[in-house]
Design a protein around this nucleic acid. Sequence first.
DNA 1: CTCGTGTGAGACATTGATGTCTCATTCGGC
DNA 2: GCCGAATGAGACATCAATGTCTCACACGAG
Lengths: 192, 192
Amino acid sequence: MSHSAILRLMAVDRERVLKEAAALLTRRASTSMDEIARAAGISRATLHRHFAGRDALIRALEEHGIARFAQAMDTARLDEGDAPAALRRLIREAEPVAAVLGFLFTENQLFEDGEINAGWAELDARITALFRRGQEDGDFRLDLSAAWFTEAFYGLIGAGAWSVHEGRVARNDLTHSIAELLLGGIRRSMEK
Amino acid sequence: MSHSAILRLMAVDRERVLKEAAALLTRRASTSMDEIARAAGISRATLHRHFAGRDALIRALEEHGIARFAQAMDTARLDEGDAPAALRRLIREAEPVAAVLGFLFTENQLFEDGEINAGWAELDARITALFRRGQEDGDFRLDLSAAWFTEAFYGLIGAGAWSVHEGRVARNDLTHSIAELLLGGIRRSMEK
DNA sequence: CTCGTGTGAGACATTGATGTCTCATTCGGC
DNA sequence: GCCGAATGAGACATCAATGTCTCACACGAG
């Protein structure tokens, strides 16, 4: 096995562990390293080999979530087309990291790290800008603030990810459920 | 000072502590007893005098949240009038306990206690029934499930409470923001 | 003023999770 | 079959939070 192949294999494992960790930590932040390890199908020792410690795991979650979400934004091309369509694309692209985003939104007081906060602030700004654009274009309602839309977006993403995890919403319906509910709620209604 | 007056005073303190605890724990479940105490303006010793321990505090939060939310449901008279109006009343009545509800929704894996879960299950059932009634009456859309509406309801309540806590949404706008967004998202649109 | 209650500050032992270690085993490539 | 890398299981010390305690002080009622 080549060196790069080994690295690739480990990378896949990291992703799986991070997703499982996010799912558990979202609903019980006190989940122990041992429980996370078992949920990911590995031992605590191995978990410690992949992530130096609990803090390192959380930070990896944050970095991973921010990076993947930023990537989703790029792919969704938020500036193109009308805002509702862009929002649909964003939700579709963000779906794979929904669990991680839910965790990060929920537990956003873990670190006062400036770098992490800066990363989040930029993502927030980009989303809020999208909502504001929709308002300026007349697509989104004006009686609610763009900041609230942003918070609601995160809240629905988190609730959706958990619903899928609990089997209350089908995975294939997640994107549709979030997008339709959010868009219906923020769209400027026609008759006004 | 009479005995009942003392009890009443302590009850007020408890409520304040619980609200503060919910606000903090929602965004950092590992918040220590000491931090909670200081946020509530009391010492750790006093906190322990009011609540036997951390578990007792969490349980008190759950019981308080369930009781107050059930009370909000009763006051809102979910069975009367059309479903959208009932939902508005529910959101308005639930606003004072929004922070607690957000915490309970977020950290719902803390105890496997049968009694607590039973309490939640009943509340869930009542809300879901409301959404289902709205669907049957033709007020709410049918392409999304009532179960998802329920989860979204909790998610928006939590996001809203946090937004107010962070100063991103005015307290007086909270009810309106949640109700309008949720109702807009779940209403059956007219043109279909 | 005096008493009683509630509180704040701090000391202390306990506990559970954490982080580090070793050793035996498994697995895949050769 | 052999070998190296990765893993699982477990032992162990460490540490932070917890829970319990004592003591001194503030404050309101009488």
